[in-house]
Amino acid sequence: MDKDILICGVGGQGTVLASGIIAAAAMAEGNVVHSAETIGMAQRGGPVTSHVRIGDKAFSPLIPLNKADLIIGFEPSEVVRNIGYLSAQGIAVVNTTAVKPVTASLSGSGYDGSEMTAYLKKRGNCIFADATAECESLGSVRFLNILLLGIAAGSGRLGIKKETMMSVIEKRVPEKFREANINAFIKGYDIGSATGQG
């Protein structure tokens, strides 16, 4: 399988664990995988991206523009920031809940993500879900990353089996949160399946 997956969000949202799970699951299915993370100062509330490259034709750790098959977006403006990476046939999974930066609160700009979602809707090739609200209904926004992985897997665009993903998640998350994470994944998977993208 050759697939380029870009994960984007805001520092602190759990993108690094999400990319680690995709990489481990893709490897468990026999693929060569490379990935790259944003680490350092940007992790303090700045924009973060993870690039996951599956297949043996990828030499650069970063996905070139117009090449991503899938974007998993934790925040709507971050999807817009990275939309240039999406290929013409690619799909973006978009969490519609905005993370408001301090600069927006200070300036009173009123940024709430709706403008971003409207832009992406017009552009097309996106699956929208209020993943943050879905997580809150499960008890904690802590599982946002896993729920979004569920949506990506359920849409059929991730190219990795549901069972493989679940087995990796079980191994990667702390035992006391295992059940909650699996529930989040399944909830996301059902949302993804319902989009009929697969």
Partner: peptide, 17 residues
């Protein structure tokens, strides 16, 4: 791969947690 028609993006300078 440009996003010239996109709405203005919020700036996210790194901040203290």
């Amino acid at each position: 791969g440009g996003v010239s028609d996109a709405p203005a993006l919020p700036a996210r300078p790194p901040v203290l947690c």
